[in-house]
Design a protein around this nucleic acid. Structure first.
Lengths: 336, 336
DNA sequence: TTGACAAATGATTGCGCAATCATTTAGGTG
DNA sequence: CACCTAAATGATTGCGCAATCATTTGTCAA
């Protein structure tokens, strides 16, 4: 009636409990005949390992902790989907935490997750507090920072350079003849700030930078906020002829508001989004966006954790840059 | 140097380990003075409970298992966000599983999650396999089905009636004078099928049903697929004058394709989406959609699990219907 | 055939906590 | 002031597994 344990399986197959444990964790270390018998007994009894007991005994769990700034930011949904695809069918599982874009909330969550003795930790970005960094460095599990690039990751980092992605997009717009290009940023999290820095760097390089072109809000991104921000922008900078958005939602909102105001895209207004979530490519005209490998980032992060747990060493290159791909579309193309 | 245990905290505060345990789990059962001393010692030593040991000893963990069909479906991102907001600051944590819209995958995942001795299980919909249902009924933890309504939930169900939501939306379109209203469905998961049934029921009631008006695809929803499906639809049913979509992305795609083809909304084509994710309200004209309480569903599901774990009994009404709200907008308004 | 060595398997122990039952202390009553 | 009860605290035990160390069995060369 009760849930069978390793001892029950052992009795059923005529061996000791520890041998069953070995057959499960390291099949090559038991003989073929025995392995068969053990697995038959497991099947017969419906044995399922007890994760808590295994964790307590080995001081190591199969939980991968994933700390993201927000669940409703679709970027991180894609990351989770990617990680999930990798762990499917393995013994690993994903436990999630929502830091709410706060480094202090994150710092408070880390000890809680560390007590799980996780198989690994995935955490967004590089802007952890000093204390968080110290805790994560001391953790005896792999730590993967994601969605960014860095020469000095805690353990490894999987992502791309937000600065470079923004810079490339803005350089493209400049090349297409846009001059009064605004930066529209929502939420202003660290990655958005890096995009802003990339934007600024290129604008300054071409002598085009003007602080009035920076439009930011702490609010979360949405199509609606994009529409509003275009309004504020045009009030302040009526000669604005292009917008680089930190986000696709905002870009779509700006495009819709341009349509409403009969501002022609790209003739009177160039628009570039970020992340390339799908809608931008379907707009009329199609909106240029920076495609980011979100699912692959999640997958690579999870795979790294699995590999490390399988005994592989830390790789030489700890900055795993998966790049980005500027998808140039009609919204920023003035030349053929 | 080593991680402190209850025994260490006990020594520090001059009591036994079990008393410390009690002070933590049920503060009212120890004297005030002692409680202070214990918490001071916990603070001083930096004690953090060991979840695995607690789970093993009590046969009950603080993990809430959430099984969703997809992470990239934003509906479930919102559910997770709602659940996450409720458990923030508590000892509970969320472990996620991706069933990939497959009842069999789901069935395979359930035993894995049950061995965690979860504090509760959240699972999408009512279409579990018979075996899954049996396992979940036998589980000695609260089980919350979500995103649907039912008279016979496993334990409780938190959601709304997809059938009724669709029926109300379609009835509204009929009332506004639309006659050849198509149903456009993607992925065709159980909830989409219920929406289709609601659509069909109203159409038949008005003598408007025509199987040619059903346009479905197993593909996942996207703006792009919405655009394509409008094309196929108009090829088969050129006199189609309205579309009820199982999804906002599809509705937006259809609206964009209408713009491209110079089909006027709502004069020549009425459009209604589902879920009201935000973009529909910003389109020109604004698109009608059925607003669903996704975050609240996640929150209520989590709250129920917390309440049950705090000793509250199963409520009398096990079908917690949070309803929906048809947001009527310009895309379906032909009359003032 | 024997010995040496590797491969295969087993026995013991403790991980850190909570359940259970036992004991002590405090507070109130006649 | 003795007694009773309730509140507060403590001692013991085992959850199910893996680490560690010990033992048995099998294999092969000389």
């Amino acid at each position: 009636m009760k849930k069978p344990t390793l001892i029950d399986v052992g009795k059923e197959s005529g061996v000791s409990a520890i041998t069953v444990s070995r057959a499960l964790r390291d099949p090559d270390r038991v003989s073929v005949a025995l392995r068969k018998r053990v697995f038959a007994a497991i099947e017969k009894l419906g044995y399922v390992p007890d994760a808590a007991a295994a964790t307590l005994a080995s001081n190591r769990s199969s939980v991968i902790a994933v700390l993201v700034p927000s669940f409703s930011n679709y970027v991180f949904s894609d990351v989770l989907a990617g990680a999930s695809s990798v762990i499917e069918g393995t013994k690993y599982s994903i436990q999630i935490g929502n830091t709410g874009y706060s480094a202090l909330t994150e710092e408070a969550m880390i000890p809680k997750f560390l007590t799980l003795k996780p198989a690994g930790i995935v955490i967004a970005g590089v802007d952890q507090t000093e204390k968080s960094r110290k805790m994560l460095k001391a953790a005896d599990c792999p730590v993967v920072q994601i969605m960014d690039a860095s020469d000095d990751p805690i353990d490894v980092i999987v992502g791309f350079s937000n600065f470079q992605a923004a810079a490339q997009a803005v350089a493209h717009m400049v090349e297409q003849g846009f001059r009064r290009i605004a930066f529209v940023g929502t939420r202003m999290d660290p990655r958005t700030q890096q995009r802003m820095a990339g934007y600024r760097s290129v604008m300054e390089e071409h002598g085009l930078f003007d602080a009035a072109l920076l439009v930011t809000t702490p609010q979360k991104s949405s199509v609606e906020i994009g529409r509003h921000l275009l309004g504020s922008l045009l009030d302040t900078v009526p000669d604005c002829d292009g917008v680089f958005c930190n986000n696709d939602d905002v870009a779509v909102g700006i495009a819709l508001e341009c349509h409403r105001r009969n501002i022609r895209i790209p003739q009177n207004m160039g628009i570039c989004g970020f992340n390339d979530l799908g809608t931008t490519s379907q707009m009329q005209p199609a909106i240029t966006s920076v495609n980011t490998p979100r699912a692959e980032i999640g997958a690579r992060a999870a795979q790294y954790i699995l590999d490390r747990n399988a005994g592989q060493p830390q790789p030489e290159n700890r900055n795993i840059d998966l790049g980005f791909a500027l998808q140039v579309r009609a919204s920023t193309q003035r030349t053929a």
